[in-house]
Each structure stands twice: as structure tokens, then as C-alpha cells.
């Protein structure tokens, strides 16, 4: 059974510096959504200390921020993997067989809806309703890059190429 990825409960000095940066760059707009989106982009998720940090520096309460974070699917309160894979579930992709692809991907990476991140934190599989690339159905997005006209084989090839890239980086 896969273990839950650890959550950071306390911020390291580097994390705090990143938060400061986010604030400095976006204080003109002073929009909670923008802060959260920047945090999500930087950290890969919205850590509990980030919510605290924003609450302390703005007029938004922690409960209000938590309400916003849990409403939108883009925000994750659990840490995510290095590579975010989104298999498109739009109409054209559905008609093109996206359900099978989703199942096969999740079984290949040994993840499910409860625990969408692989044990080695290399991949997270997230749902997305539609990528808007319907002419290339079935499609998926990995870290913002779209791959279309997928078959089970081509999808696994793409995913494994990211794993290879991750391995090379570590070395």
C-alpha cells in the first residue's frame, strides 16, 4: 500500500524567502487568487504555512483562504510530484477513449484518486475537465505541454521519458 507523501508543517527559511518574493511581486493587485496561484506554481501545492503567511499579511482570514483553496481544483493542499500529468476528460477525448487511458496510467504508476502522487514523488495524476485540444483527442498535458492522439503505448512512452529526465537530473 502506498504511503502518503509527507506534508511540511513548518516552513524552512528558503520557503519563507519564496513567500516574501511572491508577496513583493503581487502586492499591487493584492488578490488572494493571485497569491495562491503563485504559491501553487512555486511550491507545487499550497502548504499550511503559506495559508498562515497570507492570513497574517492580508485581511483574509485563514478559514476564508482555506475555503478558496478547497473550492478550486487547481489548488492542492497535498504536495505534488515533480511532473503533473492531466489526462483530458472532455467530450471528444471521452469519445476517443480517455477513460481507458486514465485507468491504464493510474495502474502503471500505481496511483489512484485518493493518493494521486507516486511514492517517489516523480508524478502526480490530476483530473482536468477539458484541455481544449479536441481535434487531438485523446489528449493529456504534462507540465503544461500537450500530447495528442494518444494510445496506451504512446502515453506510457511519454510518461517514461519524463521519468528518465527526472533520473538524469538527480545524477
Amino acid at each position: 500500500m502506498q504511503t502518503q507523501v509527507e506534508e511540511n508543517l513548518t516552513a524552512s527559511p528558503e520557503d519563507l524567502a519564496l513567500m516574501e518574493d511572491v508577496f513583493r511581486k503581487n502586492s499591487r493587485e493584492n488578490s488572494l487568487m493571485i497569491y495562491l496561484q503563485q504559491v501553487q506554481a512555486q511550491f507545487g501545492y499550497v502548504p499550511p504555512y503559506a495559508i498562515k503567511y497570507i492570513a497574517e499579511r492580508t485581511l483574509f482570514s485563514e478559514s476564508r483562504i482555506y475555503g478558496v483553496v478547497t473550492f478550486y481544483t487547481q489548488f492542492s493542499i497535498k504536495p505534488v510530484g515533480k511532473n503533473i500529468i492531466k489526462i483530458c476528460n472532455g467530450t471528444a477525448c471521452h469519445v476517443g477513449g480517455s477513460k481507458v487511458l486514465g485507468k491504464k496510467l493510474r495502474s502503471h504508476l500505481k496511483v489512484d484518486d485518493e493518493n494521486p502522487t507516486t511514492e517517489d514523488r516523480v508524478f502526480t495524476v490530476q483530473p482536468v475537465a477539458c484541455l481544449g485540444c479536441c481535434a487531438l483527442a485523446p489528449a493529456m498535458m504534462v507540465n503544461g505541454r500537450v500530447y495528442g492522439k494518444l494510445t496506451v503505448d504512446s502515453m506510457i512512452d511519454v510518461v517514461e521519458s519524463y521519468r528518465k529526465a527526472a533520473e538524469l537530473e538527480v545524477v
Binding site: 493587485e29 488578490s31 487568487m33 493571485i34 475555503g67 478558496v68 473550492f71 481544483t73 487547481q74 475537465a129
Partner: peptide, 28 residues
């Protein structure tokens, strides 16, 4: 003009939910 990004909620395509989102609310 300023840009605001959606955060993955289909309902925010509805104009009042969209407005709520820009107002930093839950997109209802």
C-alpha cells in the same frame, strides 16, 4: 486591462461565479 487566471472551476464560466472569483471568493 489586467489578467486574472481561472483556477480550474468550470462554474466560473458563469458570469456571477466568475465575478466572485475575481473578488477572491469561492466561485459560487
Amino acid at each position: 486591462i489586467s489578467i486574472r487566471e481561472g483556477a480550474g472551476a468550470f462554474v466560473c464560466g458563469e458570469e456571477t461565479a466568475l465575478i466572485a472569483s475575481i473578488e477572491d471568493q469561492r466561485g459560487m
